[in-house]
Design a binder for these strands. Structure first.
Length: 463
DNA sequence: TTTTGAGTTGTTCGA
DNA sequence: GTCGAACAACTCAAA
């Protein structure tokens, strides 16, 4: 028997661990939920519900291959190692397959799982399925990891040789019911948050939905990606992130599909964004301190970050008095997703204008994003806060009003998410001042003063 | 080893 | 309104 432990790879298509296991013979699939860790890691309820629904789809897809999906619940990572060992013994496994995850705790857990499995005499194999190129293999001429994106991306493009899609393998001989293991529970009883029906419409589950989304994006919108991607009122981006983060679609399929679209600069620009995802995964793999709540540039942990609960609350609730920021924060809360340009604007506003610790913002995003991914979220926040790898220079502070005028010129996006401003014309909607209706707040911070404050804080940190 | 060019996503100020 | 320079100087990567 061959066991596949599913984690952030909730699909049957182009799944390296699953394919390796199937090549060896009969397969049992295993999923282990850790609700206690969801709590401490602040995973968004909308994300957990998306995962629950994708697991149901995965179960169906696997059953077509006559592969049973066994679910279990563990209190923590050591608990999941116990469950794995129980499963390997009870099912008399020959091999265990898993697709690597790259945050530090997950790497450590998998090291332990691999050695525990090998002690039981089980062949244990880890596959690099979640990223295009194995971390540790993209190095500069000095043999060091890249700290700058552009040379990293160039090297990746030179190295990248995607394997062909695996040939179709036959199903299991029969969909048996495997003997019970430690911690086993039905899929629906794994401690999921209460679902909201609107989530199902916003973020449909399953590989078919993801594949159709990718196909559609690469059939036409990708051609205009370079021109349209910065405008939140346009459908200019792929919005594939929730499916990519949960592994419902493979990164290789995204890369392949974009390459095959042959529509010029658009797909190449989009592929660069896929490489940013890659870059930040390599960064957390190479630099353990980034996984431990530290700034990539650790000397910037001594900045005089503010911890003002009221300012933070206004930011969270979309009541800062800066229309584009408030629209963006409300989009996040209402849909579980935020446009990339707006993630930069809101993150820059929190970390520079409010001078709040970027970790507060990072955490809030994780608590609300359907596509919340540690490496991408951390990388993005540290970019905005100027504490990261190849981050924005600290003096390059976005002016949210200027950004609003440039990227939501007609104010359509603001009007959609901040209805109390919908009567304002396209000039005043970005910066209503005294024209604002009574229910809309005045700006909680003076942009000019707060910009100077941030510049001074970074300047004075040099010593 | 030294040197050189380059670095996601900008803003402000003054002519 | 438009344009170029200043912002502040540092690190990375490769020649």
């Amino acid at each position: 028997m061959n066991v596949v432990w599913f984690r952030t790879d909730l699909r049957i298509e182009d799944n390296l661990a699953l394919e390796a296991a199937r090549q060896r013979g009969e397969v049992i699939a295993l999923y282990i939920a850790t609700p206690d860790q969801w709590q401490t890691h602040n995973d968004a309820p909308i994300k957990l519900d998306f995962w629950r629904r994708n697991l149901l789809e995965l179960e169906k897809a696997l059953s077509r291959l006559k592969i049973p999906l066994v679910c279990a619940q563990a209190p923590d990572y050591p608990g999941s190692i116990e469950i794995i060992c129980s499963a390997l013994s009870v099912w008399q496994a020959d091999s265990l397959h898993l697709n690597a995850e790259y945050p530090l705790n997950e790497v450590r857990r998998d090291h332990q799982v691999l050695s525990a499995a090998r002690e039981l005499g089980v062949e244990a194999v880890i596959h690099h399925d979640q990223i295009l190129i194995e971390p540790g293999s993209v190095l500069n001429n000095s043999g060091e990891p890249f700290k700058v994106f552009t040379p990293f991306s160039k090297k990746c493009r030179v190295m990248l040789q995607l394997p062909d899609r695996a040939e179709k393998l036959g199903p299991n001989s029969s969909l048996g019911v495997p003997e019970a293991i430690k911690g086993q529970k039905p899929l629906e009883e794994l401690g999921w948050p209460a679902p909201e029906s609107r989530w199902t419409d916003l973020w449909p589950a399953g590989e078919k939905a993801a594949r159709e989304k990718l196909k559609h994006f690469c059939s036409q919108p990708v051609a205009g990606y370079k021109q349209n991607r910065d405008f939140p009122a346009l459908p200019g981006t792929s919005t594939l992130s929730p499916w990519l983060t949960s592994g419902v679609i493979s990164i290789r399929d995204c890369w392949r599909e974009a390459t095959l679209s042959h529509s010029g600069e658009g797909p190449e620009t989009w592929k660069n964004e896929l490489l940013w995802r890659e870059f930040y995964k390599h960064i957390i793999f190479h630099y353990p301190h980034v996984n431990m709540n530290k700034a990539f540039r650790q000397e910037l942990d001594s900045l005089p970050w503010r911890y003002d609960e009221n300012d933070f609350k206004a930011w969270c609730e979309g009541k800062t008095g800066i229309p584009i920021v408030d629209a963006a924060m409300r989009q996040l809360k209402e849909t579980g997703w935020m446009h990339n340009r707006l993630r930069m604007i809101t993150a820059m506003f929190l970390s520079k204008n409010l001078l709040l610790d970027w970790r507060w913002g990072e955490k809030w995003f994780m608590e609300h994003l359907v596509d919340g991914d540690f490496s991408a979220n951390n990388g993005g926040w540290q970019w905005s806060a100027s504490t990261g790898t190849d981050a924005a220079p600290y003096f390059r502070i976005f002016n949210p009003i200027t950004q609003s005028q440039r990227f939501d010129a007609q104010g359509d996006f603001i009007r959609y998410f901040v209805p109390e401003l919908s009567e304002l014309d396209e000039k005043s909607i970005h910066d209503p001042g005294m024209l604002k209706p009574a229910e809309y707040p005045l700006p909680i911070v003076d942009l000019k003063m707060s910009r100077q404050r941030a510049l001074a804080a970074f300047k004075n940190n040099k010593f």
